[in-house]
Amino acid sequence: MSSHTDEELLVENTKRFKKVPTLPAVIISACLCSAQIILAFVLPELCDKKGKECVLNSFSILIYTHGGHWAGILAIDQVLHLAHHKSRLGGYLEFYTKTKNIRRAPFYLVSAGNFVLMLIVIILHDLCDNDATCSHTFTKVDYLRGMITLESLVVICCNVSYIIILRDFNAKQSPPDVLRDDFATSIHLGGQIESIGAQQQDQIMEVMERQAELIRYLKDHSETLGRKILELTNQLALRERA
């Protein structure tokens, strides 16, 4: 009876499908990466040639812009996290699980890029600043340009993959996973676990991950209902006193 009542409340709160509005943020992320690639190739032409000197050399400017790029990706990651958290609370557990890694990948990649960038700066400073032979192979900007280009291209690929999944999810407008019979069936291993071989351990891990997300959802959902009940109880108490 209690579970039936909870399901009715959940249905009432999820009658209307709400799209995950993260497409603009992901597009901005891809644009930031594209801008980084453009700067990596344009700045040396604008600032490092004789007669075209800038206040700072292109190497320094690229380091500063990469720091700003990381801050932008961090802000976008927080926006995506908030939107997907709301979607998970709405019962869309499979979409949350499916996009969890690819959603966070750009932030981890750019953070790793910052670490590699720091190493590049230190190594080039120690080996090349006092060694004229470095200028005959690759310049410091060349190394930095290669790292930024590789990092940005991988992030753009992650963004494109995410956009494809997001558009498919928003277009289907499916009901919450917790209300779908096929999802409920998919999280039960039952007696099949003994017949599953070692080559299918990934399927077991996938089911266990879905079960973990369902437990998290039910916990958050129970806490939300508890807060609503407490608020209603307080309101009723105030009315009785009045």
Rank of each mutant, 00 (worst) to 15 (best):
I27H: 06
C157T: 13
T149F: 07
I102Y: 03
F169H: 12
Q211P: 01
Q200H: 15
C54A: 13
C33F: 00
I102N: 05
E53Y: 13
N57V: 12
D48E: 08
Q78E: 10
A71Y: 04
V154F: 09
G68H: 13
D168N: 08
G67V: 01
A198S: 13
F41K: 02
M208T: 05
K98N: 11
I204M: 09
H84R: 12
Q200I: 00
I120E: 14
K49E: 15
N57S: 07
I164K: 05
H85P: 00
V79D: 09
L166M: 04
T224P: 00
P24L: 00
R227T: 01
D129R: 12
D129M: 11
R104H: 05
V42M: 03
T185E: 11
Q192E: 09
L225A: 10
F17L: 05
T133I: 08
S111L: 13
F107I: 13
C134V: 04
L9Q: 09
L80W: 08
K172D: 02
C33E: 14
E209W: 00
G68T: 04
L119P: 01
S174Q: 13
P44M: 02
L166Q: 09
T14C: 06
V26M: 15
L23V: 08
L218I: 11
K172Y: 01
A237T: 01
V20S: 05
L62H: 02
R180T: 07
M118A: 11
